[in-house]
Each structure stands twice: as structure tokens, then as C-alpha cells.
Design a protein around this nucleic acid. Structure first.
Lengths: 271, 271
DNA sequence: CTATGCATGTCGATA
DNA sequence: TATCGACGTGCATAG
């Protein structure tokens, strides 16, 4: 891996190094004293201080202060990054993007460290469970929602949007299920209500509305009660375990395919 | 400013340097090959690759891939960070936080660069205009919303939430105004509708509902029309200019206080 | 401390 | 391309 490190470099030296690094789409890390101006959707100014500035290989720019999760200033991958050294003023980094039109200007007055590199990163990123997977697990195991439930569709178009699960319960009533992976707020209840109302208007039948979430805010519960909607607890962790088990089983099947099972009849009972 | 830079260091050396740096709350930047496991609200795995890992002075951790704005994995400022070197496995960085209970594990198999430093950053950060400021400017200049409007309150409690501006129009009708700094979606309309409904139930009067935003999505306009809510254009930039003018005037007053104004009567006309 | 709503939200999917 | 909804959203604030 290429790696260039300059400690306490001259601003003019950094300027030319930066231009080259940006041109060749390398990763740049700068520790230095700077001030930052931003204008676009909002507008901000950051007075001078020592910061960590990152220019990524796709042109994304992050200005980080020494604490906190989020960058104080940033620009998503932008095509045009300008570097200018002005004696007496400093090293100016200027970026511009359209849609939305926004600019970000970083003016370095002192550079403590410049790192230029190119990272090779093809490692896959997997999120084990998101709302979609929760939905699929529940759709495949409707008894987790309610005994006797029969799933008719996932992501059914109702009115303007899509309800997560569409089903019929044990006594034949239509059921619309909205799913949340985190604590459900009043917003989620209103979203479900919107579906229930749209469904009523469209089909002339009042369906049951079930909101499933690991927890509910008080206002969510209150609103659901008022609107005649049901709240049901669901444990994402449990679904995740189920999903993992399912994947492991699938993996196992793949692993063993073509090999005669040593005790196939015994295993079959569990599937 | 303290600054330690190690290129291609031994994992064991890095381990002790990291422990010391974390103990003394310094800023750490690592370029290296690693894999990452996360489990908490969700769960994820990141396969090996070269990444930029940052440990901030408050214990916040960011794992960045070579492209994109957002970190692929992270942990907000967490009190407990563990560093262990296991020969044959690698350098393990393990962090845990409660509320929510989440852990993040980074396993380095190769370190290309280690930077330890301490940034001094007391520069002030100013955001020129956010929704709150837009609201205040509009409340102080209600004619920008509608001629003859009289503002009764900002952030008035209605039902569960707070409506941005509460006013009475020229013919005495009550008005609820919801404000958006960006393009208003259907969600914003529903939020306003919630306020209007709550108000109707609470006071037995149907108020006007006005949604103000720089732009409206088609579904927002459609939904607003259906629900009898009004959409009004507002230009954040214009409000920002007004705000700046107000602040400049205020600044000017401060600057000149105690000094006899040279042309006070002329200025008064504009205030 | 929890609940609520904003954010330069960002990001992906979809029409 | 614009819109929509989810997010390990993070974050400040009000109660």
C-alpha cells in the first residue's frame, strides 16, 4: 500500500501534495489548524482550532473536532475540490457541489501532519437484521404475530404507501401489520392508521391494524388506543436468532449437498 | 502539540501505545487492515479490508472505509475501551456501552500507520439559520406569512406536540403554522393535520392549517389539498438575510451604545 | 431520565 | 432524477 507521511510540512509543500493526491483519488488525512465556512442548505462558520480533516477517495470531505461522533463540517462526495495556497492567508481547500448547491471552504493556517494513502477495501459488510428481514421472518412464521394468522402479502400497496404485512386472522378479518425495529412513536401509529383508513375506503371493510415493535412510546400507545389499533411486542433479537438458525440450516444444506446424510431421517423431523 | 507517528509498527507496540493514548484521552488515528463486529440494536459484520479508524478524545470510535460520508461502523463516546494483543489473531479493540447495550469489536491484523495526538480546539461553531431561527424571524415578521396575521405564540402545545406558530388571521380565524426548512413531505402535512385535529377536539374550533416550506413534494401538496390544509412558500435564504440584518443592526446598536448617534433620526425610520 | 422532533441529516429503493 | 421511508440514525430540548 502506498503511504506518504509528512510531519509539520510547509503549507506550500502540502498544497502540491494535496493536488496530486486528490487528482489520483487517494485517501488524505490532515491534522492541522484551520477555520471552516459552509453555505448551502444552511450556513455555518467554524472559528480556528486544531482539527482532523479527511478527504476520501471519492472526494467526500469530513472535518472532525477532537470529540464527538459526528463531523462538525462535511461535504458528501463532490466532484470539484480546489486547492490554493495563498501566502499570508493559508492553504485553502474549496469544494462545491450542485443539487443542492453547497460550498465548503477550509483554510489551514498550520499543518501538523499530512497522510496520503490508498486503501484497498473490498471486505463485505453485512447487516444481520434490518426491518426487511424482520418482516420476512414474521411473514414466514405468522404464529409469532398471532395464532391462526395467514399471511396474504408483504409490502402490500395500500393507499399511498406499503403496509409491511397483509394477512387474514383466524376468524376471517383482514389484518394490516406495521412493523418497527425500534421503539414505535406516535408517527408509526399514524402511519398505520393511514393504511387502515385507505384500506377501508378502498375495500369498504374495516381491517384490524396491528403495530409491532420492541417497545412503544406512551403517546404511541395512547394514540393507538384512541384509533382502535393494536400494539404487539416483538423481539428483534429473537427474530435475529430465528433468522440465523434459518441461515445456518440453509448453509448446512449447502455444505452437505451431494453428500449422503448420515442420519437424514432424524434431521428431517426438525425441519 | 504532542504528536506521535508510527509507520508500519508492530502490533504489540501499537497495543501498548493505544492503551496509553486512550488512558490519557488523546486523539488516535489508525490506518490498517481490520475486520469489525457489531452487535446491539442491530448486528453487523465487516470482512477484512484496509480502513481508517479514529478514536476521539472522548472515546468516540469511527471506522471509515475509503469512500462515503458515513462511517461503516462506530460507537458514540463510550467509557470503556479495551485493547488486547493476541499473537496469531491480532490487535483487538473492544468497546461496550450501555443504553443501548452495544458492543463493537475491531480486530487489526496489520497496522500501516498509527497517529497519536492531542488537538486543542476551542474555536466557536456557529450555525447561521436553523428551523428555530426561521420560526423566530417569521414570528417577528408575521406579514411574511400573511397580511393582517397576529402571532399569539410560538411552539404552542397542541395535543401531543408543539405547533411552530400559533396565530389569528385578519378575519379572526385561528391559524396553526408548521414550518419546514427543507422540502415538505407528506409526513409534514400529516404532522400539521395532527395538530389541526387535536386543536379542533380541544377547542371545538376548526383552525386553518398552514404548512410553510421552501418546496413541497407532490404527495405533500396532494395530501394537503385533501385535508384542507394550506401550503405557503418560504425562502430560508431570505429569512437568513433578514436575520443577518437584524443582528447587524443589533450589533451596531451595541457598538454605538454610549456614543451620540450622528444621524439617529434618519436610522429610526428603518427600525 | 424519557419522549419528541430537527438535521447541511445520509442512504438506498423505486417510480 | 425526485420522492419516500428507514436508520445501530445522532442530537438538543422540554417535561
Amino acid at each position: 500500500m502506498e503511504l506518504k507521511v509528512l510531519e509539520n510540512p510547509d503549507l506550500e509543500v502540502v498544497a502540491s501534495a494535496l493536488k496530486k493526491a486528490i487528482m489520483s483519488k487517494q485517501l488524505i488525512v490532515v491534522l492541522g489548524e484551520c477555520r471552516v465556512d459552509y453555505e448551502g442548505r444552511a450556513a455555518s462558520r467554524l472559528e480556528p482550532g486544531e482539527r482532523l480533516v479527511i478527504i476520501k477517495q471519492d472526494g467526500a470531505i469530513l472535518v472532525h473536532r477532537p470529540t464527538g461522533y459526528s463531523p462538525v463540517n462535511w461535504q458528501p462526495p463532490s466532484p470539484t475540490i480546489e486547492v490554493v495556497y495563498k501566502p499570508g492567508i493559508g492553504l485553502i481547500l474549496h469544494t462545491l457541489r450542485d443539487r443542492p448547491r453547497e460550498y465548503l471552504t477550509v483554510v489551514f493556517t498550520k499543518i501538523l501532519l499530512l497522510v496520503v494513502s490508498r486503501l484497498r477495501d473490498v471486505g463485505e459488510f453485512t447487516m444481520y437484521i434490518d426491518e426487511k428481514e424482520m418482516r420476512d421472518v414474521l411473514a414466514k412464521n405468522p404464529s409469532l404475530i398471532e395464532e391462526g394468522l395467514r399471511v396474504l402479502a408483504v409490502e402490500k400497496m395500500v393507499g399511498g404507501g406499503y403496509v409491511d404485512i397483509y394477512a387474514v386472522d383466524g376468524v376471517g378479518r383482514h389484518v394490516l401489520i406495521e412493523l418497527k425495529r425500534v421503539t414505535a412513536t406516535r408517527e408509526a401509529v399514524l402511519q398505520l392508521y393511514k393504511y387502515v383508513e385507505s384500506y377501508r375506503i378502498e375495500y369498504g371493510v374495516v381491517p384490524r391494524g396491528i403495530l409491532m415493535a420492541p417497545a412503544f412510546s406512551p403517546t404511541a400507545l395512547e394514540t393507538a388506543l384512541k384509533l382502535g389499533l393494536e400494539c404487539k411486542h416483538v423481539d428483534p433479537k429473537k427474530l435475529w436468532e430465528l433468522l440465523k438458525k434459518g441461515q445456518r440450516r440453509k448453509a448446512a444444506l449447502t455444505d452437505f449437498q451431494g453428500r449422503p446424510p448420515s442420519n437424514g431421517s432424524h434431521q428431517a423431523g426438525n425441519i
